[in-house]
Design a protein around this nucleic acid. Structure first.
Lengths: 158, 158
DNA sequence: AATAATTTTCCACTTTATTCCACTATTTTC
DNA sequence: GAAAATAGTGGAATAAAGTGGAAAATTATT
């Protein structure tokens, strides 16, 4: 069964833990599969998060939207822009769940970057999915007080 | 299996490390081959990057699009334009993966220009591929903070 | 509890990368 | 200009990596 968001873009919610197989692959949780539109391509772009020890996973459609927007603002004869673009593209990978059981194969380099051992958490985060080493994911929890303090730093709603 | 982008132009994403053979050739990663359109010619244009110690590799179609655009902005009776064009064309090479295993042979001059030793990284960068000496590629990483600082210098979205 | 669905493990197979060698063309030297 | 040296090209064999499927185990559902 498939359920999709009003504007056609999948929204990912929930946490799923999976094990890595002998070849370094992991099964993409079926709950996330079911959230995608019927026609939507099962194809994702993955990138190391800049601040946290996790990977960000976007649908290919979401990636195209984002990257086209970024590109449109760049002048490739500008040194800083060229530098920015290289970093923007660094350590990215395209993955596609296989047809049989929906396994994805993430480059070793990226798995090492987040310190993966045996188990991995897929954490739905609306327009993206975060991928964590299981142990590390629980370490990142902050206290209720810290959360409230953070919330107070947000801008007002307009 | 081949997969192509909506507008027919290949988008290269991902990093692949290959070794140079005894005659200075390197195999073009099959992942990049598979991203190209079925009819698309396996033919590329390579040039030393102006800012970084790497080579830029474009599909022939992408090169034609870009160079036509540049040309259209030039007046060849203008001394500066003529000078620009000469430099724009300098040290370019056309390469074509061989039919058997997809090896390409890059002019020694260009390989020396990026300080290649034994291993080379093909780094997908959307509309182009960057070619780096392995060691140098990792040296160019910048920190998350630097990246954010760079991002802030980019023009606003229009 | 039984059935269905999903996840995990295991193994076979295919594709891709690397090394090695033989052959052809081109340039250099005598 | 011929012989030698060098550079370039193509192919085969081996090694490594990646892919796909079956079946067992686990979890969820009826």
């Amino acid at each position: 069964m498939r359920q999709t968001d009003y504007n056609g873009m999948a929204k990912f919610i929930g946490e799923y833990t999976v094990k890595i197989d002998d070849k370094g692959r992991l099964v993409f949780p079926s709950a996330f599969k079911n959230v995608m539109s019927d026609g939507e391509e099962m194809k994702f772009v993955i990138k190391k998060d800049i601040f946290a020890d996790c990977l960000e996973m976007y649908t290919y459609a979401e990636w195209e939207k984002q990257s086209e927007d970024v590109k449109s603002r760049l002048n490739f004869f500008n040194r800083k822009h060229a530098l920015f673009w290289r970093e923007y593209m660094r350590d990215r990978a395209v993955v596609e769940p296989d047809s049989k059981i929906g396994r994805i194969s993430i480059p070793k380099k990226l798995l090492e970057a987040i310190g993966v051992n045996k188990e991995v958490v897929f954490a739905g985060s609306d327009f993206k999915i975060e991928i964590w080493a299981r142990e590390k994911y629980s370490e990142t929890v902050i206290s209720g007080e810290e959360f409230i303090a953070l919330a107070e730093t947000l801008p007002e709603n307009r």
